[in-house]
Simulated assay, not measured.
Amino acid sequence: MTPALKGTTLDGKHADIATMRGDVVVINIWGSWCAPCRKEAPELRKLAEKTEPLGVHFLGIDIRDNRTAAKAFERNFGITYPSIYDPGSRTVTGFKQLAARAVPTTYVLDKQGRVAALSIGPLTYQDFHPIIKDIAAENA
């Protein structure tokens, strides 16, 4: 099962994955300092936009970063989904053996909160859209 993921977003709001239970959730571990994260940001934005009608939620976890740089990253790449601000990288340890070992890492959680797909390194829309779509279609 998914770890308890909650915290304060870059915008100062509270985010809690528990409120997304029953839906497919894409969790992306990133940092503004990460070149591969900059490469994948437009792909994630497009995935979020195209899968929202399927009831898919996106949640970022910004690690080892400063708030100003992270907010600029989101603004520059047009990221509209929330990101938990986690400069100490504590949130990701809850994934235990699946904990992110590289940045970016992306998890797709099924409607039961289980890790159904995992990408280590930058993903592409073309490769990941069918995966998310299939997971969202399960038990639809």
Rank of each mutant, 00 (worst) to 15 (best):
T91H: 11
N66Y: 15
R45N: 14
S32G: 15
A99S: 13
K71F: 11
K39S: 12
I63M: 01
A102S: 14
E49R: 12
R67Q: 10
I63Q: 00
Y85R: 07
P104M: 07
I29E: 03
A69H: 08
D65Y: 01
G78D: 11
T68K: 12
T91A: 12
C34I: 07
Y81K: 08
C34P: 08
A48V: 03
P82A: 02
G94I: 01
W30E: 04
N66V: 12
K71Y: 10
K50Q: 13
D86L: 02
A100D: 03
D65Q: 01
C37F: 03
R64P: 04
F77D: 09
T68M: 14
L59H: 02
L59F: 11
P82W: 00
S89H: 10
G78Q: 11
H57M: 02
Y81C: 00
P82Y: 03
K71G: 06
L98W: 09
A72W: 07
V108E: 08
F77M: 12
L59C: 03
E49N: 10
A72S: 14
D62A: 05
L47A: 07
P36S: 08
I63P: 00
Y107A: 02
K71M: 15
I61K: 01
N76K: 14
D65H: 10
D86Q: 06
I61V: 14
R90N: 15
K39Q: 15
P87D: 06
R38N: 14
E49C: 04
E49P: 12
T93E: 11
L44S: 00
A41E: 06
T51A: 10
Y85G: 01
F95Q: 07
G88S: 13
T93W: 13
I29P: 01
C34S: 07
Y107M: 03
K39T: 15
I79V: 13
E74N: 15
G60Y: 00
V108Q: 04
R45L: 11
A102E: 02
N76Y: 07
C34T: 09
Y107K: 00
T105G: 04
R64H: 10
L47W: 06
F58G: 02
T91D: 09
S32N: 11
T106K: 05
G88K: 15
S32Y: 08
V108K: 00
A48Y: 05
L59A: 02
I84D: 02
Y81P: 00
C37Q: 11
N28F: 04
A35M: 15
Y81S: 05
F77G: 09
